[in-house]
Design a protein around this nucleic acid. Sequence first.
DNA 1: GTCTATAATTAGATAGAC
DNA 2: GTCTATCTAATTATAGAC
Lengths: 187, 187
Amino acid sequence: MTRAEQKEQSRERIIDAAVEEFADQGFRAASTRAIAARAGVTQGLVTYHFASKDELWRAAADRIFGRLDEGTPPGAVGSDEAAIRAHVAFSARHPEVFHFMVDAGRHDDDRLRWLIDTHLERRFRAVAGSGGSTARAAHLYYAVVGAASLMFAVAPECRALTGRDPGSDAAIRAHADLLVAAFASSS
Amino acid sequence: MTRAEQKEQSRERIIDAAVEEFADQGFRAASTRAIAARAGVTQGLVTYHFASKDELWRAAADRIFGRLDEGTPPGAVGSDEAAIRAHVAFSARHPEVFHFMVDAGRHDDDRLRWLIDTHLERRFRAVAGSGGSTARAAHLYYAVVGAASLMFAVAPECRALTGRDPGSDAAIRAHADLLVAAFASSS
DNA sequence: GTCTATAATTAGATAGAC
DNA sequence: GTCTATCTAATTATAGAC
């Protein structure tokens, strides 16, 4: 492997580790040392590749939205059955997306503004633009995303509290069935 | 005011400040100094009233569940219309509950176990015991809570992204209407 | 490019003045 | 009861060896 390839691989591993750590701990509680440990490098190398914790967070956000766009194309969050099933399946496999978004969305700061300008507005426009009022689209968007994601986002709690494993195929299917019955337009 | 009353008032103010700080920042990122500042006391007084950050967190959890039991009686999360409306209204006024629970529910640690044993199991049994399978109750519980809470939990994002203020009476009513149409049993 | 060492800040917890 | 001062540990960011 060439030196350039090694560098790129280190950078990639750091970003993947950052996604996990930011989602697990939230921005403030996440530490660059823990990210470095997850990636199998030293903390010095993290600050070599990313000048600041904020810059690393933005790289992690880009990676997260790459996964999101791949799993649930923009505009796919709505009352369409296939879209709902896709979103439930994605939420179950990628609970880190929900954690990352809730962590960013609760404080009106520079990170939220950057996230909206860079990723969120583009996705929301695709949902809101498909007919109906913006207000109704907003309510439907947060209701479907919240209903689809919470059980998987607090999977440890769900397991210990209800005895049901949200990661199982049966649970994912049952959750999708429930949401389709609740939100799918019966056209 | 007597000395004992002063002590009690300080203690109460610290707990209220802790609820806000833990909900805003999550357990790890929350600092006892920030909690002291919110309460208008010094950090030394916080550690006088509560021997550790963990003990303060449990006092904050007790306060949060007091509010929750008051606003949405155990067993009220289900497919009953009045219960759904009550839960939406409560989530809008108390987004700190959702943040506190998501923060605690994602890691299987001592805090989560304490929360389940002390508060969550009691509430979940009231939901699951009202007929139907435990599995179905679990799916419905997380779907309704997630759908009811997310918009208010990320209110800053919702405002900046959609232009809609989730705190307004109109938004709360519209959100409740959507959830009733989605989840209320049409018996 | 990657590491080690360290500076400056902040954390939770403790000790002691009043 | 409440505050100030301080200890130890952990944080981000920087500097420099190799």
